[in-house]
């Protein structure tokens, strides 16, 4: 049973690259373009792992994480934030929500795959 990974990013370029890399590595990729869509996906799929951007329209990544951590059904899902800049305040806020892994954009496919194998084995 392959693991299901949710990728939340409003930039189609990122989603494209991530999806391609995930498929190549034998994972199932589920894509969402903002936090709200991400939450919808979580309701419908059993997700093993989330990659999420922060700045997105409709619902930000941070807000999505907050809601994920409040939901008993999936509050312990591992999450990696995708980000362009490493702002300390954002990181600290995320840390309190139990998100401590960051992946700085832009990244290439290889880096992405390496991250996946470090986190998912």
């Amino acid at each position: 049973m392959s693991k299901k990974i949710l990728v939340v990013d409003d930039a189609s370029l990122i989603r494209h690259v991530a999806a391609k890399a995930l498929k190549e590595a034998g994972f199932e990729a589920v894509l969402a373009s903002n936090g709200q869509e991400g939450l919808n996906v979580l309701e419908q799929h059993e997700i093993d792992f989330i990659f999420s951007d922060i700045n997105m329209p409709i619902m930000s990544g941070m807000e999505m994480v907050r809601r994920v951590r409040k939901n008993d059904k999936y509050r312990f899902i591992p999450i990696v934030m995708l980000t362009t800049e490493t702002k300390m305040e954002l990181q600290n806020e995320a840390k309190e929500l139990g998100v401590k892994a960051w992946l700085v954009k832009p990244f290439n496919k290889d880096k992405f795959l390496l991250v996946l194998s470090k986190i998912l084995g």
Partner: peptide, 19 residues
């Protein structure tokens, strides 16, 4: 003490070791 609740898995690290 937070390690488990971040959802991260040590078994993944062990698997990665073998890679």
């Amino acid at each position: 003490k937070d390690f488990f609740t971040t959802g991260m898995s040590i078994n993944s690290v062990f698997k990665f070791f073998n890679k």
